[in-house]
Structure formats: structure tokens, C-alpha cells
Amino acid sequence: MNQPINTHSTEAFRGKYIKSETDLDLMLKTDFGKFFIVKVEDLIRMIKLPVPPSRATTHTFIYLTEGEANMTIGSQSFTIYKDECLIVPAGQVYSFSKHDINKGYLCNFHNDFIIGKFAKNDLLKEFDFLNIWANPCIKLNPQCSIFIRQLLERILIDYVENGLSNIEIIQSYFIALLCEINIVQKPLTGVGQNASINLTNKFKELLFKHIREKHLVSDYASLLNVSPNHLNKVVKSVTDKSPTKWIDESIVLEAKVLLYQTSFSISEVASQIGIDDQSYFSRLFKKYEGISPFQFRKMIEVS
């Protein structure tokens, strides 16, 4: 389990799976099959930065052995250090703007990969950290960190040499890794706060599902069977941010993804996120980003 990853193996990965920057761009924006793993230091040398707000249908897991990593997930920025993990749930919006000095592992995986031949759908419910509302940063204790690193080393060795031809073995090791994380992961709960946190998490989950058609606090309060005032009070107490601001930021995030990942016009982007008034959309976007949607798209094209 402690066998080091040699230079030949990492070069083999680069030669076998990443032949151009276009391949890498597709890897980051879309599914690369159901699973891939790579060393962070190998991947980061080939990434063209910045990576504007993007969304994938797979989960991303990062574990650092040295240095630090900075990423914006949703509307918040996060930094992890040695022996810490960062998890971007499938469907969440992420971006990053600079090369950090670090080493570690990055895995990208689909829910179908976790289930595979032997697991049941219920297994996914065991891993709260894969939910859109979860805390993406996970600190590992020293013993757990050793286990996680050993599992990642073993998975990478097999993946580099054989791809997914031994998928059941890789799946078994990876599920063990997720179970190790589950032991130390601290969910966003507290004594006397469970009801408030559960309501806030449900609000975030609904926001993720309905942001393109529901833009009012009353819309979500109705779905949750609570009053708008109660929802406002609870969400503000748990997150220090009002539901209205959560909604506005989510609208802008959706717009940023569309401006980057599609060729829609500005008016079409506004329409896609449920806003008929383009001038209102532009004002809202500029309020949170400091620039207009047109300037944001131009900035991406230049970079």
C-alpha cells in the first residue's frame, strides 16, 4: 500500500489520457467516463487558468499532501491545506483562478461508479458530504489521513497501469475511502439547531433544483410549508445570509455558467434563468459581479 507513484506512472497517465489542452478542458467540464484519478501536481501544470464558473455532472474530490488549494464553490471561497479534503458535489458551480503550490490527488467520479455492480442506491445516502448543501471542506485526523493516502496511492497505481479494466477493485478501494471520510466528517449540525439546519439545507437543495423558475422567498417557503418570515429568520441565523441574497447569488451563478459554457446571447441567458427583463438581469449581475454580463463574457474570451 505504501508503494510510491513513480515518474513513469504519472507520465503514462499524461500520455494515455491527456494528449492536449482540449482533452483536459473536456475532462474538467464534462464526464471523463465514470471515474478518473490524477495527481494534482501533474494536472495543474496543464490547466489553462482562470477556470470560469463551471458545472459537471460528476463529483470532484481533492486531497492535499502538501501546500494549499483555493477554489470557489457556489458563491463561497474555500481553502484547504495538507491532510485536508475538498469535495465539489455533482451539479455544483465551481471556479478557480490561480495556480496554487501544492501536491495531492484529484478524483472525479459519478454516482453510477459508486454503485457499480455490488452496491445499492441507498449507499449514496450514507455520504452526506456529496450533497449540494454540505460543507465541502473536510479535515482529517492523522490516522485517517494515512489511510486515505494509502488508498489513493493504490487506486492511482491500478488506474494508471490498467485504466478501469479492474473497475471492481478500484470501486471497492474508493468506497472504503468514502467510508473513512464519513467517519471524520462533521455535518453542519449542532445541539438545539438540528431543525433550523435541516430547514436551511432543504432550502439550499430546492434552490439548486428550482432557481431557473422560482426567484421569490415565498416560492421556497411554500415548498417547505413554512412562512416567508420564518424561512428568512432561520436561513439568516444559520448562514448569516438572507434567503433573498442566496436566491440572487444563485441566479448570478447560473448566468455565469451559461455565459461560459454556452453561446447564448445575453437576452437568451436571462430568459434561460427565468428573467424576461434583460436590463434588470444586467443590473442584478453587475450588482454582484461589478461588471456587466457582456463584459464578463468578453473577459472570459480574452483569458
Results as ranks from 00 to 15, higher is better:
Asp25Phe: 13
Val217Gly: 01
Arg45Tyr: 02
Gln150Met: 05
Leu284Asp: 04
Tyr260Asp: 05
Leu164Asn: 09
Asn194Thr: 08
Thr10Val: 12
Met1Ser: 07
Asn201Trp: 10
Tyr94Thr: 03
Leu24Gly: 06
Gly190Tyr: 13
Ala90Phe: 03
Val235Ile: 02
Gly104Phe: 02
Leu124Gly: 03
Glu301Val: 01
Asn166Thr: 13
Asn108Met: 12
Ser20Cys: 05
Pro142Cys: 10
Leu26Asp: 12
Glu205Lys: 01
Leu124Ser: 06
Lys241Ser: 06
Glu268Ser: 15
Thr7Gln: 15
Leu207Ala: 04
Leu223Gln: 06
Ile183Lys: 13
Leu224Asn: 05
Arg154Phe: 06
Lys103Arg: 06
Lys186Gly: 00
Pro50Asp: 03
His99Ser: 13
Lys98Asp: 09
Glu268Val: 05
Tyr260Arg: 09
Leu223Glu: 11
Asp31Ser: 15
Asp276Tyr: 14
Val38Trp: 08
Ile211Cys: 06
Leu223Gly: 04
Glu168Arg: 10
Leu207Ile: 02
Phe113Gln: 06
Glu84Lys: 11
Phe174Glu: 00
Phe61Ser: 00
Ile18His: 11
Cys85Arg: 01
Ser196Gln: 14
Ser218Thr: 11
Ile146Asn: 09
Ile169Arg: 11
Val269Met: 05
Gln143Asp: 10
Lys287Gly: 04
Asp122Ala: 12
Gln295Pro: 06
Leu199Gln: 07
Asp31His: 13
Lys29Pro: 07
Arg212Trp: 01
Leu28Met: 09
Leu216Ala: 15
Lys245Trp: 01
Lys204Ala: 00
His8Tyr: 10
Ser54Ala: 08
Lys19Leu: 06
Met46Trp: 12
Ile266Lys: 09
His99Trp: 13
Met1Arg: 05
Gly104Asn: 01
Thr262Ala: 09
Phe78Trp: 15
Pro187Arg: 01
Asp240Pro: 04
Leu259Arg: 00
Ile247Arg: 03
Gly104His: 09
Phe96Tyr: 10
Val38Glu: 14
Thr244Asp: 11
Lys256Pro: 04
Glu11Arg: 06
Cys137Lys: 09
Arg45Ala: 10
Cys107Asp: 04
Ile197Cys: 05
Gln150Tyr: 13
Phe285Trp: 01
Ala221Tyr: 00
Val257Phe: 04
Phe61Tyr: 15
Pro293Val: 01
Leu259Asn: 04
Ile155His: 13
Arg297Lys: 05
Phe13Trp: 11
Phe281Gln: 11
